[in-house]
């Protein structure tokens, strides 16, 4: 059963066609990777799902909902969480506070109750913290728990962003280049986390990644894009040997 569905989606920025008549679907429980050279439209596809951009044409459905009838701030409530290609953390807050913002979509109290910090607010806060502590444990973030983001190394920030997305309790997790800028060891950690997220937590993963090693290790299916259009789709092995894909990559190198 498919969780996310793109139907003939097109997005133009003036003269540039960032996404061109793109159709694909992501099944519940799988790890689905988007690959392609820089400027292929991968991040743009994520931004369309986040509702930051309105497509020029086409339909996007998620879990039975018409995604295009939702505002950007309502996407999280449907069960979609994401990370960003260039970290978008709340730099002047601690790791703990960043993860707690991930719980925002579960907010049940209103601002008046919060001003007085009523018992119901306290109860909800304790629940939020229980969830977040589990994530801190899972991602080995204890040493950084109370540290400001602004002072953290790049690799740790990427993990915090993953944690913040997990804290929303999503059905689908979108990871935009989770391993870029990471060391070999950090990339290995990331690989096991993605595996656990899918297997133990049962979360569907849609990811953009350039590291083909990581892609073949964790993903079930791969979609290759170039200039906003679909080049090939299949298992990692199939896509890696596809003539059109090879041409696109070699073409980029040449």
């Amino acid at each position: 059963m498919s969780l996310l569905e793109f139907e003939n989606v097109t997005l133009r920025f003036g003269g540039v066609i960032a996404v061109n008549d793109l159709s694909f679907s992501v099944k519940k429980g799988e790890v689905f990777a988007l690959v392609g050279p820089n400027g292929a439209g991968k991040s743009t596809a994520f931004n369309l799902i986040s509702r930051f951009y309105q497509p020029t044409a086409g339909q996007i459905h998620f879990d039975g909902h018409d995604l295009l009838s939702h505002k950007a701030s309502d996407v999280a409530a449907l069960g979609i969480a994401r990370t960003f290609q260039n970290n978008e953390l709340f730099d002047h807050s601690t790791v703990l506070q960043n993860l707690l913002i991930g719980r925002h979509r579960h907010r049940k109290t209103n601002f008046l109750a919060e001003i007085f910090f009523t018992p119901s607010v306290r109860k909800a806060e304790i629940q939020n913290r229980e969830m977040v502590e589990e994530i801190i444990e899972f991602l080995d973030l204890q040493p950084y728990r109370d540290k400001m983001i602004a002072g953290l190394p790049y690799g740790v920030r990427k993990v915090v962003e993953l944690g913040r997305a997990l804290a929303t309790g999503p059905k689908m997790l979108m990871l935009d280049e989770p391993a870029s800028g990471l060391s070999v060891e950090e990339t290995t950690d990331m690989r096991w986390w993605i595996d656990d997220i899918r297997r133990q937590m049962g979360i569907t993963v849609l990811m953009v990644e350039h590291d083909m090693g990581l892609v073949s290790n964790v993903s079930d299916r791969v979609l290759a894009l170039a200039d906003g259009s679909k080049l090939a789709q299949g298992t990692p092995a199939e896509v890696q040997t596809d003539p059109a894909v090879l041409k696109a990559y070699l073409g980029e190198v040449a």
Partner: peptide, 11 residues
């Protein structure tokens, strides 16, 4: 700190 990610978190 970041309107983009605030929105993605449902704010």
């Amino acid at each position: 700190d970041s309107e983009v990610s605030a929105q993605a978190m449902g704010v």
